[in-house]
Simulated assay, not measured.
Amino acid sequence: MSAARQIPAGSGSFGERLRQAVEARGRVVAGIDPHSSLLEAWSLPDTPDGLREFSRIALAAVAGKVAAVKPQSAFFERHGSAGVAVLEELLAAAREAGVLTILDVKRGDIGSTMGAYAQAHLLPGAPLEADAITVSPYLGAGSLAPAAQLAAEHGKGLFLLALTSNPDGPQVQHARTTADTPVALEIARHAEQIGNAGHGEWSSVGLVVGATVGEAYRRLGLDRAAPSVPLLAPGFGAQGAGPAQLPEVFGENAGHVLVSLSRGLLSAGPDEAALGARAAQLQADYA
């Protein structure tokens, strides 16, 4: 794995801000995913105006009750420039409300192209600025160096796809490298290296590890390779995982898990009070 600039720890780092948010508001991360079916269930049109109202209600309901929000960019992008404009508004509104944002974009490329993706999302003042983004390391984890460098400079975060919850993921993620180590393990090692957290601190570079991967996270050695990284964990709620999977899947690193919930939370809408109550209950369930 090629070297990348390390993201410094400290009070201004994303990792530290995330740790403080989890301590204050629990581990749940609210996915803001305006599926067409959810818009219909909320009696909203599948249009940019529908996305705007959906996003407004969701953010207002969970602000102060969750560690972060995680908009899924694809559900905004499918509406073209008007949908992307709504995403810009959502990210800005969350920032103004003091809510951390993890933008789920899964960017992954090389060289100047990766640098441009990073500038779009990690550069302060950018229209689509977020506190952290998801990235794909499958062109080689070192290919993410431009994003790691920009994150280091501006106190932002990255979440590297490592062990995803889709059934075909193991074909690539469990495969062995030329050094005869699992690909996912090499990604975890890289995240730990560039995150550069001090003792007891949270790294600003995390991993995406599905809550439905069973014993793979520990069997492949990711727990030992990257003990300081936050773990963004989809798969809870509608996909079948529950509170029992925190210790079962993540073992001693369960305290670093961010429980990503979308449908399990958003199905309580569109009533803002009901959404807020569901968020509070989920925080208690996964405490």
Rank of each mutant, 00 (worst) to 15 (best):
E192Q: 15
A225L: 07
V205R: 08
V66G: 00
A30W: 03
A68E: 02
L222M: 14
T47M: 01
S165G: 14
T212M: 12
A9L: 02
A233Q: 01
V86E: 10
P34D: 03
V105Y: 01
A21H: 00
H35D: 07
I194N: 03
H35C: 04
G31K: 04
L231Y: 00
A94G: 06
A74V: 15
G210I: 13
A241G: 10
E192D: 15
F236R: 03
G142A: 06
V172A: 14
L185P: 08
G235C: 13
E272V: 02
A74N: 10
W202P: 04
H35P: 00
A85W: 07
G98Y: 13
D223C: 11
V86C: 04
S2Q: 04
G195L: 05
S73D: 00
A225V: 07
P48L: 13
E252Q: 01
S112I: 08
G255Y: 02
L163G: 05
K70A: 00
R224S: 04
A148R: 10
S204Y: 09
G125Y: 11
H190F: 15
M114E: 14
V209E: 09
G237V: 08
T47I: 04
R224P: 01
L59T: 10
H190N: 14
G269H: 09
L185A: 12
G31E: 10
A74M: 12
S55A: 11
V29W: 00
P247N: 06
R19Y: 09
H174A: 14
D131W: 10
A226C: 08
P227I: 12
L185Y: 11
P182T: 08
I57E: 06
Q72W: 04
E129F: 02
K70F: 04
N253V: 12
P127G: 13
R17N: 12
L231K: 00
V62W: 06
K106W: 10
L51K: 10
G210H: 14
H256L: 08
P45L: 08
A147N: 05
F76C: 14
V99T: 07
G198F: 08
E186W: 11
A162R: 08
H199N: 06
L207E: 03
A277G: 00
F236Q: 03
V22P: 03
L51H: 13
K65R: 15
V135M: 08
S73E: 00
L150R: 12
V172M: 15
K65N: 12
T164Y: 11
R224G: 03
A30K: 04
A132N: 14
A4T: 01
G108S: 02
A93K: 14
D109V: 08
N166I: 13
G125S: 14
